[in-house]
């Protein structure tokens, strides 16, 4: 009993260690000479941002693929020629399409991709708000729902409170809820 949490902790630690061990990112080494460090930084940033068309889940920096090396060479050339980041991105887009962008552009096709998570967050918030509002407005109905469960906690609570005062509105709601359930325990209902 005492050893089990420790073993769990130890195995978790070991597993976390493995995560660092198998880090897949391995930069390819190019020998490019830059005129300024700003150029070099842009080269690194751009190579990190474009996805290698051949290796699929690697960016240009980490991909060992032949075409990735060619594309790094093109990025290098364009940086030395003084092209802007937007021009370089356009170069990549006009040849390999949206696929090469790890950060997809905001278009009609990618709207759901960009705002889908927000949509689900709002949906979840709406559901949660409804549940909270209902139980806050109507605490009796909340306890009424849980009383119909067969949890020990609720049954014991019911024993201690034999007389529950509920309004007519609540009674109506309770009856509606019970009649909605085809196999509701009716013995409780008739007892009241």
């Amino acid at each position: 009993m005492i050893r089990r949490p420790q073993t769990l902790l130890l195995s978790l630690l070991l597993m976390t260690g493995l995560l660092f061990l198998v880090s897949p990112v391995q930069a390819q080494v190019d020998v490019y000479e830059f005129e300024t460090t700003a150029q070099e930084q842009r080269f690194r940033q751009l190579s990190n941002e474009f996805r290698c068309p051949m290796c699929q889940n690697a960016n240009l920096t980490s991909s060992p693929g032949g075409v990735a090396a060619d594309l790094r060479r093109e990025i290098y050339r364009m940086i030395l020629e003084g092209q802007t980041d937007a021009e370089i991105e356009q170069f990549m887009l006009s040849r390999y399409g949206d696929f090469v962008l790890y950060r997809p552009r905001l278009t009609l096709q990618t709207v759901l991709l960009w705002f889908g998570p927000l949509l689900f967050l709002l949906l979840g918030a709406w559901v949660a708000w409804n549940i909270i509002r209902r139980s806050a407005e109507n605490p009796a109905s909340a306890s009424g729902i849980s009383a119909s469960d067969t949890e020990d906690e609720n049954n014991s609570g019911k024993d201690h409170a034999p007389a529950v005062v509920i309004s007519s509105e609540e009674r109506e709601r309770l009856n509606r809820l019970l009649s909605d359930m085809p196999s509701a325990p009716t013995s409780d209902n008739t007892g009241r």
Binding site: P53, M54, V67, D70, E74, R95, Y96, G97
Partner: peptide, 13 residues
């Protein structure tokens, strides 16, 4: 030979 035209064609292999 250096794959430059291949890039213009969107070739990746």
């Amino acid at each position: 030979d250096n794959g430059r035209y291949g890039i213009d064609l969107g070739v990746y292999g």
